[in-house]
Design a protein around this nucleic acid. Sequence first.
DNA 1: CGAGGTGATGAAAAGGATTGCATGAGGTCA
DNA 2: TGACCTCATGCAATCCTTTTCATCACCTCG
Lengths: 330, 330
Amino acid sequence: MAVTIRDVAKAAGVSTSTVSRALSGSELVEPRTREAVLRTAEQLGYLPNRAARGLITGRTGNLGLIVPDLANPFFPDVVKGIQARAREADYSVFLADTDEDPSAELGLVRALAKQVDGIILCSPRMNAEDLRTASAAAPLVAVNRRGSHVPAVTIDNAGGMRQAVAHLAALGHHRVGYVAGPRSSWSNRERVRAIRAAAETERVELVEVGNAPPQFEGGVAVADLVVAAEVTAVIAYNDVVALGLLTRLAARGIEVPRDLSVVGIDDIAMSGMFSPALTTVSIPKAQSGRAAVELLLQVLDNPGGRNPSRREIPTQLLVRDTTAIASTRR
Amino acid sequence: MAVTIRDVAKAAGVSTSTVSRALSGSELVEPRTREAVLRTAEQLGYLPNRAARGLITGRTGNLGLIVPDLANPFFPDVVKGIQARAREADYSVFLADTDEDPSAELGLVRALAKQVDGIILCSPRMNAEDLRTASAAAPLVAVNRRGSHVPAVTIDNAGGMRQAVAHLAALGHHRVGYVAGPRSSWSNRERVRAIRAAAETERVELVEVGNAPPQFEGGVAVADLVVAAEVTAVIAYNDVVALGLLTRLAARGIEVPRDLSVVGIDDIAMSGMFSPALTTVSIPKAQSGRAAVELLLQVLDNPGGRNPSRREIPTQLLVRDTTAIASTRR
DNA sequence: CGAGGTGATGAAAAGGATTGCATGAGGTCA
DNA sequence: TGACCTCATGCAATCCTTTTCATCACCTCG
């Protein structure tokens, strides 16, 4: 079978304790001995058995990652950031996808809890109580969501919305729409709040339009409502919705940005590929992912510590081709 | 701490052996006892310790999954299929992304090998020898790649290419281009071969254009070569490349499909969202993922069995708006 | 020179689940 | 009624690593 620590010990002429210590970099082993052990381990191709280690240390070396929908291009980038940072810290990542089903989230947390040292919950839709329950089941960091005692990585929604609304106001838009996302989404609630505040500051009239499922089809479906709302500009819950919107608008012969300005949120890769290229509030996705891992590692290293730390990632308006001077036609 | 099998045994008034047997569904336990044990376990909220189980069984209950680039919308769908099927079989999935770096693949396989029961390698770019090495390190199934002794899930490239070329030929195209993907890609080599064969059958002249990185930018970059090749239709290595192509063609004022027909491969979600909607060879991505897991489970259940089984998933041409009658202008 | 200290090492327990083997009760058949 | 068999159950070993505690040698200082 596989080579164990005992094989190494025998080959090196020491005890398993010494091998273990040498391998884990303990100070309590003579340099010469350590080196001999390491050399032997190398020669024999020794690889520690994670199960055995986990059994005694109670740590798995694994992290859990739960996302609502991997098919939404926003998440793969976040996942990549998480992956990369986790690998640096020598953790492996379990990935699970809830298929946009909030009721699946808690179950997945429970299922994962025993197999990981900590969990990263991306854009969770579960209610506050479930979130508390979840964070009791395992060390946990939320991304794009705040909870009372849950460490969280969020983005600067307020700043992003302020930039977006100011941009539109500066272009002469007085009546702006917001295509809302799912009601259960914390990000959506944040964005609504931020947009309202920004609209007030900028003296822009705000019209909230529908609740779109955060998918392309949601944008398609809500487009006619946007038109009916008689706004000259619209901000969408996210880029995917904005692209759906764009598609339906084009089909109805409404030209963007001449007749209507559109702003997305996320800056997914394909938003720049569409024509016209989407003006959007850019989120550093990989950075969010890395930050989440860092927060989680911090929590793991300091288990008792009652520090629901938070990290907020800045956002940046990216002006591209879907926003222009307000048309006077309407 | 956590409730163990001993707690359950004590509470149910039986031995740990009986609990273990009851839980694992062994026949050697009286129905009444089994039920009592199950009820007790349920009440106590018992969850088996995977590390302990793994230590003795040698199994981890985990699968490894390696993809070249999660940001390519093709892969999330495959991953979702794999996820779903793995969960049904009570396996968890480790995800790793190589960032399109073939030299990282083998290292990841090695790193993962000790922590999983088997590995699924999506569209591996590693050479044949490394693939053999990899498959020696752990039970392994390849997706979109064949190797001499490696179980594999592939798609019917030949059938898809035949449909695509026949479709173009029927529209009167006599000179068709193929935008090649990475040379190291098995899929690309397969597609080249299949297209050549189909072109011969359909009496269509085939022009192979460039080698594009399998990304949007690759399509953008190769567009001018396509124009210079003076073809009336072009098939791209995949949808992402096709969309890049489309974007650059539009920028150059070349109208699709009037001036040039374009066919993609993959049927990623956004290919239908672009305008014009992309004609493409559809691949059942989730189904490929599920099939890969099934093949892997089969290998795991039958360790000695020298059966490098294979599964081929059918493909289907999806005619949308980027193909039309060949223009006579050229 | 002896007591106490230091530092390297080894022995052994612990961690939780599985499983081969032993046990004992109950049943069957002669 | 006794020998034998079957079947449910329990006992105990095992998987591999970490870690506590004990040990032993050697050094230092009084």
